[in-house]
Amino acid sequence: MIITKTLSLKAIYEFTGHQLFWLTGWMTLVTLLYYFTGWKILAFPSLPLPLIGTAVAFYVGFKNNQSYDRLWESRKIWGEITNTSRILASTVKNYHSGEPNAKNRKAVRRQIVFRHIAYLYQLREQLLEPAEWEHVSPTRSWLVGHKNWERRAYLNGRFKAELDSISMEKYLPEQELLSLECRTNKATHLLDTQAGVIQRLFDGKVINMIQQIELQGSISSLHSHQGRLERIKQSPFPRKYATYSFLFVCIFIFFLPFGMIGEFRNWGQAGIWLSIPVGTIIGWIFVAMEMIGDYSENPFEGLHNDIPMLAICRGIEIDMLEMIGEKNIPSPIEAKGQTLL
């Protein structure tokens, strides 16, 4: 996630700057063809292009709104996971049955918190698995997919120290780690284990029935939150919306230099050359809008537009460890440059 108030010129160029080269080339090619041939068919009247541009702008704007909804919903769900995690840690620590001979089982309570932290990092890892429709295509068979893999690797490299410090081994016993290896959905299995441990606390009269229901309610909420995140991850933005938006922008860019020439030729022969910079800027604006929406569709790619899951997980980890009185508390994740992972 980019956290600065405004993007630097370098960041803007890295994201959309390369589009200026082919846009300038296309505008220049059509302008040169008209200038040296004088073919009037290359000069469009002023009405068609604004109509196409208005229609494309409405469509791209609609797509961008829907893309942002996916991004914002993902962030809200992670906020709910944060709240549920804090509730779980507080209740696990403080709930006691009140039975005269009930044991405290402090080690079991501590392990529940540890297992939950392992669950958070496991969930993050599962959400970052690349899907076929995402920009980090698992096949890497196309140019953009390969470039985005490089971007993801570069971003992970900047947070290498923080990522290397994450290890479920310090939170899960070896036996549990081995049992996870054969599981398809490891995060779900960890929640199921938590539910079993809470049930055993009730069977041992460490907690009473009402407390057990509340603790199991937290586990159920986490199942629900995880399912909603998986829905966003596993359900691509409708491909027709995405594909036609890209196609419409391409059509508009194709006709743009012809419309620019038709307008600027009224300024004389010298005015025709103004169609190149003006058309390039207009085309770049439409391409940038399309790319912003396109990269907002998938909030779990490991790229700059993602939800900062690593920082969120670390924040939850710190809160839960402090609640149970642990001394070895990790440091919060700090932004690198303009990005928080």
Rank of each mutant, 00 (worst) to 15 (best):
F21C: 08
F21G: 14
F21R: 14
F21M: 02
W22M: 04
W22N: 14
W22D: 07
W22A: 09
L23Y: 06
L23H: 04
L23A: 12
L23G: 03
L23T: 10
G25Q: 02
G25A: 13
W26D: 02
W26N: 07
W26Q: 05
W26E: 01
W26Y: 14
M27L: 09
M27C: 11
M27Y: 02
T28Q: 08
T28W: 01
T28F: 07
T28Y: 02
L29A: 15
L29T: 06
L29G: 06
L29H: 04
L29E: 05
L29C: 05
V30S: 05
V30I: 15
V30Q: 05
V30N: 07
V30K: 00
T31I: 11
L32E: 08
L32G: 11
L32T: 10
L32R: 00
L32I: 15
L32S: 12
L33Y: 15
L33K: 01
L33V: 10
L33A: 15
Y34Q: 03
Y34W: 06
Y34S: 13
Y35V: 10
Y35Q: 11
Y35T: 15
Y35D: 12
Y35S: 14
Y35E: 13
Y35K: 14
F36W: 11
F36K: 01
F36A: 07
T37C: 10
T37H: 08
T37P: 07
T37N: 13
G38R: 13
G38V: 04
G38A: 13
G38N: 14
G38W: 14
G38M: 14
W39K: 08
W39P: 00
W39Y: 14
W39G: 06
K40W: 09
K40T: 15
K40R: 14
K40S: 15
K40A: 14
K40Y: 10
I41K: 12
I41V: 15
I41A: 12
L42W: 10
L42N: 04
L42P: 08
L42E: 00
L42T: 08
L42Y: 12
A43I: 07
A43E: 09
F44R: 04
F44P: 00
F44K: 08
F44V: 03
P45H: 04
P45V: 00
P45L: 02
P45N: 15
S46V: 12
S46A: 13
L47R: 08
L47Q: 13
P48K: 09
P48E: 00
P48G: 10
P48C: 03
P48N: 03
L49Y: 15
L49D: 04
L49K: 11
P50S: 04
P50W: 08
P50E: 01
P50I: 11
P50R: 09
P50H: 11
P50D: 02
L51K: 00
L51M: 14
L51W: 00
L51Y: 04
L51Q: 00
I52D: 01
I52T: 03
G53F: 00
G53A: 13
G53T: 05
G53N: 03
G53P: 01
T54F: 12
T54Y: 00
T54S: 14
A55Y: 04
A55L: 12
A55K: 04
A55H: 04
V56G: 07
V56Y: 02
A57K: 01
A57H: 01
A57L: 03
F58S: 05
F58L: 15
F58E: 02
Y59H: 08
Y59L: 11
Y59F: 09
Y59I: 05
V60G: 03
V60E: 07
V60I: 12
V60H: 11
V60F: 09
